[in-house]
């Protein structure tokens, strides 16, 4: 029963139509969450007693930093599925994730350095987390460059899947080696179980933003995947039927 549903979902024409109907709903929900999170974070939450108003950048910075890693994991997972079972849709998801992940990584770096200027007195420091985030950006760019360089897109999908899996093994190693090398970044404080912990009025908007960013990823991923599917399947009948309107 479930397998049958999954099989049907993985067929490009069905996926294309179903997702086309889903996107407006998900997009609307994403917009609501982001608006609520921004209002809560920029207006309702009190200023931080140490960092003043400057801390509010975490409402963009922290969720995008989370997303940068999360998307890489999703990408590698989809890559593995595509590599093992040769599911077209998984291959499409792998490459569609890469630019979004790169964008989030870039956003995390930019907001981080904007925050760093008033807090640390400099835009860029060779701090462990900043450096590993930068290396993550290079990993994303490498995947995109490799995909662009290989002519045959199914081969290219397998290539980037292998590369993404190699990256997954390496990310923890890179992270801890860089951490050992140098650290200045403040430790993670977004937790309720450990001290120092974050106040609830600051935490709730942050979580809203985090879920909003996730939905944004889902929506853009599905939109990109639809485009990619159309390009890849441009010679198949269902695309022709859809375009000519039969």
């Amino acid at each position: 029963m479930i397998m049958k549903f999954l099989h049907k979902l993985a067929s490009p024409p069905h996926f294309y139509r179903l997702v086309g109907r889903l996107i407006p709903w998900l997009g609307g929900l994403c917009l609501l969450l982001l608006l609520a999170g921004l209002y809560g974070g920029l207006v309702l939450a009190p200023a931080d007693y140490q960092q003043g108003e400057g801390f509010r950048i975490i409402y963009v910075h922290v969720p995008s930093a989370w997303m940068s890693l999360f998307i890489y994991m999703v990408m590698a997972g989809a890559g593995a599925i595509g590599l093992i079972w040769r599911i077209k849709l998984a291959e499409v998801m792998t490459i569609s994730s890469a630019p979004i992940g790169a964008a989030f990584t870039f956003l995390a770096l930019v907001t981080g350095s904007l925050w760093g200027k008033p807090m640390w007195g400099t835009y860029w420091v060779w701090d462990a987390r900043l450096t590993s985030e930068l290396i993550l950006l290079f990993l994303y760019l490498g995947i995109m460059a490799l995909y662009g360089a290989i002519e045959d897109k199914r081969t290219a999908s397998r290539a980037i899947a292998i590369l993404a899996l190699v990256g997954v093994v390496n990310i923890p190693i890179i992270h801890y080696s860089v951490e050992w090398w140098n650290t200045l970044h403040q430790g993670p404080t977004v937790t309720k179980f450990d001290k120092p912990s974050i106040h609830l009025s600051m935490l709730i908007p942050l979580l809203l933003m985090a879920v909003g960013f996730k939905l944004y990823y889902v929506v853009t991923l599905l939109m990109r995947a639809r485009n990619e599917l159309l390009v890849r399947e441009r010679n198949s009948r269902w695309v022709a039927e859809m375009v000519t309107g039969k």
Binding site: I135, F138, L139, L141, G142, A145, L146, A149, L163, V166, G167, N170, I173, I174, S177, V178, W180, W181
Partner: peptide
């Protein structure tokens, strides 16, 4: 022409070795 792409793929993965 794989030169530049090769360095983009490989150099980030070399970071831990360089550090240690």
């Amino acid at each position: 022409r794989s030169g530049v792409i090769l360095s983009l793929l490989v150099l980030p993965l070399y970071v831990p070795v360089l550090i240690f």
